[in-house]
Amino acid sequence: MNSTAQLPVVRTDNLTLYFPLPKRRGQREAQFVHAVDGVTMSVRAGERLGLVGESGCGKTTLGRLLVRACAPTSGSVLFQGQDVSKLRGQTLRQFRKQVQLIYQDPYDALDPRRTVQACVAEPLEIHKEGTKQERDERVRHILSQVGLVPAETFMQRYPRELSGGQRQRVAIARALVLNPTFVVADEPTSMLDSSVRAGVLRLLADLRTQYSLTLLYITHDLAVARLVCDRIAVMYLGRIVEVGAANQILQQPLHPYTRMLLEAVPKLGRQLPVSRLRQADAIRQAINPQPHCRFLSRCPIADQECHHAQHPPLTAYGGDRAVACYKVAATIDVQSQA
């Protein structure tokens, strides 16, 4: 990779979003769900970054913050050096044109009253791109690009007449029709049949090379992340606990949580792992969490030190790698001995 490809397209600086919970009677302090809690990360130009974590860890919220679907409590998102939350009027429109979100649920992301053509052409109409004929031509082109061929047979149909995979393709076409530079894909395959999933994944990979996209791919599925992504960031309860090249993370996970995630991926001919994740913990702790390490209650390698210290900072471990764990040194030792 050359140096220009390494420049961050999007950078977040201590990004935080708390959702207030309704105050109950007799409760002294307001409670907050710490959906995203001090995330500092960057997405480099042209890369595919996977954001992995279990349900409720804040990965979708982080993705939504990046495209300015919601405003952060504190911290900032920098898109090509500009603070996203300060954009207004014309600059905001330019930002909207360059940044797109692909939704998780293709059944909800398309207006049921609009034809496929109208759905895909909407961003073009909003930005007043070209004449009616030119817009039609672009819609037809992008529809065939996403594999809906012949495009003419799909243009006049309504979303409900399409299958899940076809709808997701329409949603992808809609996101790409403005030639964006940065796309956040929020688990675009999680609602699809596994038979269709591979096709959509392949499509995303093809389109990325064709349109020189920068892609943030949000998923809970490490297998998918490995297939799609160059780099992976693992998220746990609003914090990023490990970042690194996809291969490295999968072959040599440093954070105990990443290890647990990898163990949880079912494999043929292997017994289910003993230390399975307990879902209830994840959700309970995101409300007014303790200052110590978020992963403490489930961590197999925690000791006294972890109980007294603050949540560990994300520290670099050689090259691309960064991990938020006090015990990483020990982990590395164990792995090198083994």
């Binding site: 495209v67 300015r68 679907a69 905001l92 429109r93 909207r96 044109k97 797109q100 979100l101 939704y103 649920d105 909800d108 992301a109 398309l110 207006d111 009253r113 759905c119 909407e122 961003p123 909003i126 930005h127 809609r174 403005l178």
Partner: peptide, 26 residues
């Protein structure tokens, strides 16, 4: 509450656009 309303907004549509093109037809 549907995602396509937010999607129109994220595509750059103004509030008036969303009301006119998505809410009123529905």
């Amino acid at each position: 509450s549907h995602a396509y309303v937010e999607a129109a907004r994220l595509a750059g549509g103004s509030r008036l656009w969303v009301v006119r093109k998505h809410l009123i037809p529905h």
